[in-house]
Nucleic acid binder design. Sequence first.
RNA 1: GCUCGCUUAGCUCAGUUGGUAGAGCACACGCUUCACACGCGUGGGGUCGCAGGUUCGAGUCCUGCAGCGAGCACCA
Length: 908
Amino acid sequence: MDIPKTYDPKQAEERHYANWEAGGCFAPEINRDPNAPVYSIVIPPPNVTGSLHMGHALQHTLMDVLTRFKRMSGYRTLWVPGEDHAGISTQIVVERELKKEGTSRHELGREKFLERVWQWRQESGSRIMQQMRREGASVDWSRQRFTMDERLSRAVAEFFVRCYEENLIYHGEGMINWCPKDQTALSDLEVDKEAQAGKLYYLQYPVKGSARRVTVATTRPETMLGDTAVAVNPSDERYRELVGATLELPLAGREIMVVADEFVDPEFGTGAVKVTPAHDPNDYAMGLRHELPLVKVIDQHARMTADAGAEFEGLDRYEARERVVAKFEELGLLEKVVDYEFSISKCGRCRTVVEPLISLQWFCRQAELARRPLELMRERHEPRFVPENPYEKVYTNWLENLHDWTLSRQLWWGHRIPAWYTEDGRTIVARSVEEARERAGTDKLTQDPDVLDTWFSSALWPISTLGWPDETPDLRTYYPTSVLITARDIIFLWVSRMMMTGVKFTGAKAFDDVFITGTIFDKHGQRMSKSKNNGVDPLEIFDKYGVDATRLVLASIETTDTRWNENQVESYRNFANKIWNAARFCLMNSEGARVGEGFDEERGEWALHDRWIVSRLNRTARVVGEAIEKYQFHLAVQTLYHFFWDDFCDWYIEFSKYTILTGITSEQLSGHTPEFLSEARSRVITVLEQSLRLLHPFMPFITEELWQLLPGVGEHLLHPAYKGAPSTIMLTSYPEGKAELIDERAETDMQTIIEIVSRVRNIRSEMSIKPSQEIEIIFRTTDEHLNEVFGNNSAQIMRLTRAGKMNYATHVSTPVEIPRASARAVLAGGAEVAVPLEGLIDFAQERERLRKEEEKLAKEAERLRGQLANENFVARAPAEKVAELRQRMADIEQRTGALRQSMEAFAE
RNA sequence: GCUCGCUUAGCUCAGUUGGUAGAGCACACGCUUCACACGCGUGGGGUCGCAGGUUCGAGUCCUGCAGCGAGCACCA
């Protein structure tokens, strides 16, 4: 078989995904077991605005690991893919395109514009789908969903109508965040607070009929034109007699009242607050409490209105600010201006400073919807957040402090609000225009021009993708979903709302677990962003190192924030290559071998290294399986890496070479039948095959590529639930880690052999013995079992240490002699390994080597002795712990003794 | 202002019931050993941010402090 020395990820990646997909391997229907347990995940739908970034690759990797693991474990698995229409983001992107073409959405008109957006959605959506295929995501494409699909749109209308009927959704005037650039209302979650250096202006308002003035501090002087009161704290002595007094509002020529309100903090500023109910959320609330009039002085374009006065009308809000301040100065009413840092709200999309405005919009009373999710969390800790801290608390706190959600957006791209208005001013909320007509009793209806917040449809994602509002088999089978994997910044926007709708409409939580991934920063610790242009494109990394290697890095990130480190990908690329070459070796020596064979004899008859690797394999399977269940992906990856590289490659394959390669170097074949050889080869191939299965959820491509090449693979290896399915590693059963195959004795014995080899290699290296130089090894122990283990494996040890000669006692009662001119090492249990170096040895060098070793032992002995001398320790620590330390102490003493003897042998 | 996280080898990070500090990369030395130089072998490197406390015993638990970061609230 001709296999290249270096693994080429590309060619494997190109072939296998297409085969899996064509074979229907991703759909849950591939599972024929009617009693199979169910595992389901809905993908956080990527926005159709662009391409996938590293954060997506991270989430998708974790979801795919879980899905593949569960699928191989016999679960009926469903991972639903899809995309989000991403209302405002997408509209902005398409509008930008139009601008380049010299036109605009207004020129095109609503209908034509929407056509353009759909066209964009086609292109962008298919690009994202291709990228997900590249990632290896084993999603069920037959169930792919888009938030604007007809069916999901029906769910949106149903959601809206039902909530409206229950008075959870209402239409009315309210204080909203308005983006003057995008010309739409925004919810509180769509604006970002940003610290900003600014000024605090102290303005004086004259008290009517008095020489007194009241000073108010403000960061937005231009809003004073809309003031309808000044508020003070009722307990504030300074202003007590002013409450109820009338002030002359400068510039506006209006009279306003001084009111008392607990909201005012006497400690801040002057203790007197100007109240602008039409342009500030807190003032709006205060306005309601005191029945203050609303004076709108800023319009939707952030320009001053006619009500701001002729002098200001039409000015931009910042121009108006300067003009107002100048006027106050002229009038001698500007007390002072101080530097002041405050935070400002910006549009989450375009970064324009938002304007709080009173506006007629649709709102949702979320507090009511949050009641049952809150109970679920308090009573049953559902859903289970990973990591629990801090997200359980973050989620709970948010649910406890909900404000009404501004639902309507003055956009064109999105779900049109299912509300119609009759000519006589009635509002009809209905599932469709037909229903609306029927209910209204007229055809003369005008639909509300606005669309819904994009998160409104997202809130339904787990149920709508599965068929809600219809009672579909999918909804019954796959809901609630098993886990949601997402980033922390959308816990409020999305996670909590899915719980609200899920619980409301089905009575059940949307997911059992919520796994919040860490964030990937650039190598300087900066957040990756388009504007900083410091993002790392996953596709470039895939191209450079392969998808499998990248997935290992991503899986290792787990829940902690990490700086992107390309070295790590390189390291896992090397790991992939290691796997490739290990398999290459196995395949080059696979004559007569078949997967699954070679382990037919009684286990007691197996060679040590066979018992050992089977034990290690099962231990690894157990650790990895448990780690994945607990979302400890890093532990799983580390365990697999070290099992494969250290145990399988460094030791098992090396041990197997002795047998396997004897087929090539014929003189060592004596006494062994050809069957013996092919069985040994089968064992290696079988362990390799099991290892590939263990690795598959993390590294789907290379494992499939190699699995297909193994002799004896086929349908018969598939998990019983996948009878009749295509022959692929992804449908084999995940190794379970059988307790009865974990062999402590074999692991201990093998550890001894490994230590012997390592010690001899250390001697070689420290004594500068040429690699080509053959040496002799002398082994001396009083432990019969150890002596036997050594004897059984002496050929292996010779091979791995390049020894030409071996000497050990046929029976421990007659120990072998160790020549004076030998380099020695003392093992645990006091066994000695020596390498005679007559004529080669540098006594001083060897003394130094032994001295270093003794020093190490002495250091540990000192610590142990101290601990054991501590009466409190002996009395209070668990007995087994104490016994353990005593044992270790005894061992060290024994080794030190032997070491001293060795050193004496060198004393001149 | 409140809440929370992080601080471990030169770098990026593990360290899950408190019980001899780990990995990868980097570094040093030696190897074209018949799977792999994206490799093999050997080795060096850490008072686990600082200061206290609990404990027989603390990287791990508690308190305080410092630096970095996140979220929430307020911001007239």
